[in-house]
Design a protein around this nucleic acid. Structure first.
Lengths: 335, 335
DNA sequence: CTGTTAGCGCTTTCAA
DNA sequence: TTGAAAGCGCTAACAG
């Protein structure tokens, strides 16, 4: 009465079942180029695989090929908001359609070095939300990672850059300028690991002011509490040439500004216009509802996936289209 | 002038360098139990490994052991709020200290079946935010996954349950009841994939009402917009015995309620008390600021990691402590 | 206590 | 076109 042990179905089993060699199974299942297989053989293999419920071992393939079909996305322990969540969901789906599995890892260098992580995954590509140490990138590529892409940076040497967040800052400032504001403030986030996102946005706002012949935005760091925001607002209003319109790093900072304005008894948008970024659901729930910049996550994900899959396949990356069309302004009562 | 090809350093190289057999290297580096190694040999191996910059190939180890040192956390496409992000960050760090690498994958069954994902990763354990299909769990375990843990469910057959969200709903309702409210409402989230989180919370609120001898909460689905919330509020106030205190599924829904109350010209907390859950940063920025239930993510992560690492090591899981101490009420002006 | 050996499951030359 | 065989790098049973 021995219980049958559940051995894993291997390609050898399929080969035996189909009456061919293991290599043939491999060729058929991988559509290996330059290997023509008669349709009858092919069909026999496919049938046998289906009959046995064969599922190729990714671990073994990873060992021989030197890389898996996983794309590793590296995040820092910053506050993961709904905007990031939405993009990740789109990315995961888009990579999935290409046969690649996206997983994300929240990097904390004090706990676990990045080396350990990519060794553990052997990813086909690495996506990073922040600049990657050139030395680390070299190591990864030597290790077999086909593509190292940095999202959200203004410029970078060898790594590929996909989204230009400076456009966001520029659009924010241009909107305020177009509405007649001539002295712009910028509410910068407090959280340290957000700096890499915030800098390009701020630069964009700076450029817009400069183009319009205005002074550079007055930058204040604003924490996510009303008191901190109120202090910034009072500072802006106390300037010789007071700030009348402010770009917030994102919608959360903008929420803080709205709370701070109430505390400081400043009317929005009457005395101070505020514009956010990301268009999170809560942006429509504040009072007054928040004008903000919406991001087309679907288009963005598609673009990222195109670039990365090309690199993984060894092709030239497609021309990087202008990023401007990823962003739309959503006008609500705050600006 | 041929360029030296960068071969990967393998355990064979280390063995050669140290003048021992490959198995010895493996024993030393893995601290294999029941294999005593003289300190001098051990040291020689360690030195050789360091000198060569040896990094064991996780892919190869995965193939032989049948599983990696990766813990796979499965999410559904939407719920990524700051609360989930905070927990993930803590989990990642806590697993990292145990030598396990946590990665998360946003599951979208219409794109990529879960089978593909765990085959690709060969995880040591799977953490799921929602109930796992028993058939899938069986398959995973047969495949080598040591532990399948379901976070956030009220009860479940074989899978391990870690957090009892019903406590959250209970605390919300008890707070309102303690403040004198005798007719409670519940604002249920609209998004379908949130149902698995929401049900336990609602059940907790139900139990609290029942314990207090009150009618069950009046449940309305509230989308993340002011109009939807206003409709719910008007419904509650039109009841023969009007609702005067409402538990929101989470802080975002509570934000919608606050916006809806403004639209419906209902005063919070004067005419309607609102209590949220999760204590996201924005909860302190609404007007009025939101009373809510804070979650101790650090303690929670520790608990989850203890349970899962025990299972991975083949030990008995530690006794599940009462979950009550994970939650704290944060009182602000809204209730 | 150390070394030899046999896999883990797949890919990919190289012959037949 | 198909098949045999040599790895990929590591672990673990078994001898010595």
């Amino acid at each position: 009465m021995a219980t049958k042990v559940q051995r894993r179905v291997t390609s050898a089993d399929v080969a035996r079942e189909a009456g061919v060699a293991r290599s043939t199974v491999s060729y058929v299942l991988n559509r290996t180029p330059h290997q023509t297989i008669p349709d009858t053989t092919r069909q026999r293999v496919l049938d046998a695989a289906a009959r046995l419920g064969y599922m190729p071992s990714a671990a073994a393939r990873t060992l021989t090929r030197g890389r898996s079909d996983v794309v590793l996305c590296i995040l820092r322990p910053w506050p993961l908001g709904s905007a990031a969540g939405a993009l990740l969901a789109e990315l995961t789906a888009a990579f999935g359609r290409q046969g690649l599995t996206l997983v994300t890892h929240i990097e904390d260098p004090s706990v676990r070095s990045l080396d350990n992580v990519w060794n553990e995954i052997s990813p086909a590509a690495v996506l990073s939300y922040q600049p990657v140490d050139p030395e680390a990138e070299r190591a990864m590529r030597a290790f077999g990672v086909q593509s190292v892409a940095v999202l959200f940076a203004d410029h970078d040497g060898r790594a590929q850059v996909v989204r230009l967040d400076s456009r966001i800052g520029r659009m924010q400032a241009e909107h305020l300028i177009g509405a007649g504001h001539s002295r712009i403030g910028y509410a910068y986030p407090e959280f340290p690991s957000l700096q890499d996102f915030a800098r390009p946005r701020l630069e964009g706002a700076r450029a817009a002011c400069s183009d319009a012949g205005l002074a550079s935005p007055d930058v204040r760091t604003v924490a996510l509490d009303a008191a901190s925001a109120a202090a910034a607002i009072e500072h802006w209003r106390s300037l010789p040439l007071p700030v009348t319109g402010v770009c917030a790093y994102n919608d959360e900072v903008a929420q803080a500004l709205i709370a701070g304005a109430r505390l400081a008894r400043v009317d929005i948008p009457g005395e101070l216009a505020v514009i956010g970024a990301d268009d999170i659901p809560a942006a429509a729930l504040t009072y007054p509802p928040l004008t903000t910049i919406a991001i087309d996550h679907v288009a963005e994900a598609r673009r990222i996936v195109e670039t990365v899959t090309a690199a993984v396949a060894g092709d030239e990356p497609p021309a990087v289209a202008d990023a401007a069309d990823l962003f739309t302004i959503v006008t609500r009562e705050s600006a």
